[in-house]
Design a protein around this nucleic acid. Structure first.
Length: 566
RNA sequence: GUCGCAGUAGCCCAGCUGGAUAGAGCAACGGUCUUCUAAACCGUAGGUCGAGCGUUCGAAUCGCUCCUGCGACACCA
């Protein structure tokens, strides 16, 4: 039994009290956290036993209370059909706080992953296009999942599957040669390249010749024409450089940048293998893999003209990852509009017998819209990530000037808070929720926001700094007042939250938890004077230290910085 | 048309492996800085949990039907 699992303690006690008529594991799943604190810390609804025991639930609750061995609890009371358990506050707080002080930022770590590798396909911006709020989602969710996986004992590999190949490069080269300017592109590559791209899509409505030219340029690129390759490499390098600046702002890095072009020489092998395995069929001139036995539409591998498609490339990618890393899971942090596609991809890989195919998980997230409309680079309808980040940092600077003008490292803190607000804002809601973007909402620093959590952490650190000789000796960590008890119960839950977030690939579990903890701490902070020289001073400081550790670690799991002052 | 996701307070969302009086935040109104950072805390007000039927001792939560919105449904990724 986990030393911290009080639910198990309760389940065992109940099972004993009813002479093991129902298994502890069955009881365990029924135990709940009461909404109201007057109903205890854990509760058992006795309804579930009334059928097997042929008694009224109220009667059963009474019986359990009289028979239970109460030494582990402050009290156990029957409230109608419920048995309410009040945990031993001194024991629990002593245990939880000393654990955190010893384990520090490793509190909540577990070894479920057993060092197994998980590949994460994430971020994946397109060359020569600016990163939008949509890319933010994939980047920030993927980054957080990687951190959560690490905390659960996995070895994540973050792979930025850049969109650096495809017919759009024919268009881009054509547009650049017609309207482009070398100096401009050198100055601000993405800004100008995207202008050319948008212009191309405007003008090709009138002038179908453009498309013909674009196709020719892409063909040249595929055939290794030096001029085409030179331009492509230039666009790619310049774009990547710009992306990396944004990633630096977000504090995200990648293990690999194997974009789509990386798999160019691996596509033929996919086609050959599918043929050898007898999976490839002709249909309406194209080559497909039939998936009707999986109740799915066929996967289109080769177009009528013999050209490959994205499935082909994704199959090559999955095979490469399988061979190179032997991952136990292969995650794709990609918008929910591609759910059906990933079902097809997985089905094909399973048919091919790929070892890691079962571990393929699409980790979808909801669409970002503006005024209810989908974002589109082509139509110039886009929210630029850099602009949002810059606005948010600017806002953070204003807040500092107003609230804490004497602060050191103002610029760094403004960066941490401004960027943190954007990241946290994206991660606090369930992944699948779609978001109608609104800059004003995004730039809120009050209430349920990243800065709120950061502020609670900074307050805790501020106290610890003021405390002359914080003494975290083991002897006295027990606190029993109501406000600190709420904090301690939350601290105790952290390891479970870490597991749950991992199982569901759900960073918002961590974000919501951090809000709850910050809120409970702010309440405690407001109601209790901490720096008072009495018997419990060290216990209070130990609690403050524990809160600071767990808040910082929660923010860290989200990829958000936790400044000590703000 | 078929499939998927969603519908909870004026707005944005928790709660959804069924359990005690449905919870936060924003916005509104009122209170709290000579005391550890007021980016905070406390209070007031605000609800047919999209609609209906069913399962159950008990349904926001599970099942079915319907309504609404968004998305996906072979040569874009």
């Amino acid at each position: 039994m986990n030393k911290m699992d009080y639910k198990q303690l309760v389940a065992d006690a109940i099972s004993d009290a009813i002479d093991n008529q129902v298994s502890t594991s069955d009881i365990y799943t029924k135990i709940e956290n009461p909404k109201l604190s007057k109903n205890g810390d854990l509760a058992f609804p006795a309804f579930v036993l009334s059928k097997t025991m042929h008694k009224a639930p109220q009667e059963i609750a009474q019986e359990i209370v009289t028979k239970i061995d109460g030494v582990s609890f402050d009290k156990v009371v029957a409230a109608g059909p419920y048995v309410n358990f009040f945990l031993n506050k001194q024991g629990v707080s002593e245990q939880v706080i000393s654990d955190i002080l010893v384990e520090k930022n490793h509190y909540g770590d577990n070894q479920d992953g057993q060092d197994r590798v998980v590949t994460i396909d994430m971020s994946s911006p397109n060359i020569a296009k600016p990163m939008s709020m949509g890319h933010l989602r994939s980047t920030v969710i993927g980054n957080s999942i990687a951190k959560i996986l690490t905390k659960n004992g996995y070895k994540p590999i973050k792979d930025n599957h850049l969109g650096d190949w495809g017919t759009q490069f024919g268009k881009l080269i054509t547009a650049y040669l017609k309207w482009g300017n070398e100096e401009d592109v050198k100055k601000d590559p993405i800004h100008y390249l995207v202008q050319y791209y948008i212009r191309f899509h405007k003008e090709d409505q009138e002038d179908p010749e453009l498309d013909v030219e674009a196709r020719e340029w892409f063909k040249k690129l595929e055939d290794g024409d030096p001029e085409a390759v030179r331009l492509w490499e230039w666009f790619r390098d310049a774009s990547l450089k710009a992306f990396k600046q944004t990633y630096q702002k977000l504090n995200v890095d990648f293990d690999t940048y194997n974009g789509e072009s990386f798999y160019n020489d691996k596509l033929q092998n996919v086609v050959d293998t599918l043929k050898e395995q007898g999976l490839l069929e002709k249909s309406q001139g194209a080559s497909i893999v039939d998936l009707s036995d999986e109740d799915l539409n066929p996967a289109l591998i080769l177009k009528t003209d013999g050209a490959s498609l994205y499935v082909t490339r994704d199959i090559a990618t999955a095979i490469y990852r399988d061979k190179t890393y032997h991952p136990v899971m292969n995650l794709y942090v990609v918008g929910s509009e591609q759910t059906y596609y990933f079902k097809q991809l997985k089905a094909v890989l399973k048919k091919m017998g790929l070892e890691s195919a079962d571990g393929l998980h699409h980790v979808p997230f909801g669409l970002i819209t503006v005024d209810g409309k989908k974002l589109s680079t082509r139509h110039g309808n886009i929210v630029l990530l850099n602009e949002v980040l810059n606005e948010s940092v600017k806002m953070a600077k204003e807040q500092i000037a107003e609230k804490n003008p004497g602060l050191n490292n103002k610029d760094q803190v403004a960066e941490d808070v401004g960027v943190g607000a954007v990241i946290f804002g994206d991660l606090k809601n369930a992944r699948v929720d779609s978001i109608d973007f609104n800059l004003k909402d995004q730039l809120k620093f009050e209430g349920e926001t990243g800065p709120y959590v950061q502020y609670a952490h900074a307050r805790a650190e501020s106290i610890l700094k003021k405390a002359e000789n914080p003494n975290f000796e083991k002897s006295n960590h027990s606190l029993t007042d109501d406000d600190s008890w709420e904090v301690i119960k939350l601290l105790q839950e952290f390891p479970k939250v870490v597991k749950h977030a991992n199982q569901n690939f759900e960073p918002s579990d961590i974000a919501k938890y951090s809000l709850k903890l910050a809120k409970a701490f702010n309440k405690y902070y407001d109601h209790t004077k901490i720096l008072v020289d009495d018997d419990e001073l060290n216990a209070r400081l130990s609690l403050v230290k524990s809160v600071s550790i767990v808040l910082e670690e929660s923010l860290n799991l989200l990829g958000v910085k936790a400044p000590n002052e703000m």
